[in-house]
Amino acid sequence: MNKKKLVDMTRGPIVPQIIHFTLPLIIGNFFVLTYNAVDSIIVGRYIGANALAALGAASPVMNVLLFLIIGICLGMSVLMGRFFGEQDFTKLKRVVSTSFIAGGVFTLVLVALGFLFSKTILLFLNIPLAILDDATTYLQIIFIGLVFTFIYHIYASTLRSMGNSKASLYFLIASALLNVVLDLLFVVV
């Protein structure tokens, strides 16, 4: 590991370090909120009310999945942060690789099951039949996207566990802007 790029939050004044660490997290939350807002605005404006209702119907399932993946990644980062703080890079590397493998396998199983049972999940939630097909398609796309969601969150959690909260913010800004462009391209055009 390049020791020049590592952030040691155990030395120096704590308040500036906390501000320096949390400010990118707060800004990042703003960009996370833009995902659903932009999707809703573009779908509602250019496709119609049923498509917007389908998007809204799939949102609770999507949020549960997102929180599940974020929770798993944050849980894994606790061990990463511990071993990083102890400067035990052998254990840190083992935890990082185990996290990637275990989390990746879990995500792939979740994607496969979710993709196959999307319609069943939505029927269980009493989604109106008029929007069921659109909501199922949207939810299946969300399930496929969980692979990329996991990759982002495991990398971001790993970096944050080592004191770097800026790198994930830059990626989040770029992906939020890309989301707007791709929404316009695939929905409007």
Rank of each mutant, 00 (worst) to 15 (best):
R160K: 11
F143S: 06
F171W: 06
S161E: 03
Y138Q: 07
L74P: 01
L55H: 01
S175W: 02
V61P: 00
I131F: 01
V187L: 01
L23W: 14
G71W: 13
F148D: 03
K166E: 06
V111Y: 10
T90C: 09
N164V: 09
I131Q: 00
N63H: 10
I142F: 06
G85L: 07
T158F: 13
T137M: 11
L185M: 12
N63R: 03
M76F: 15
G56P: 08
L172I: 09
I41V: 12
L79E: 10
L25M: 15
K4M: 13
L79Q: 13
T120Q: 15
I69H: 06
H153N: 15
S77V: 04
T107K: 08
Y170T: 04
T137N: 12
F150R: 05
G75C: 11
N36T: 08
E86V: 07
L178H: 05
A51R: 01
L108V: 14
D133C: 00
L177G: 15
A53P: 09
I47S: 01
I101Y: 13
G71F: 13
L110R: 05
F150Q: 08
A58D: 04
G103Q: 09
T120H: 14
V109S: 08
A57D: 00
I144T: 04
C73T: 15
F100Y: 14
F30A: 13
T107I: 12
G163Q: 06
N50I: 01
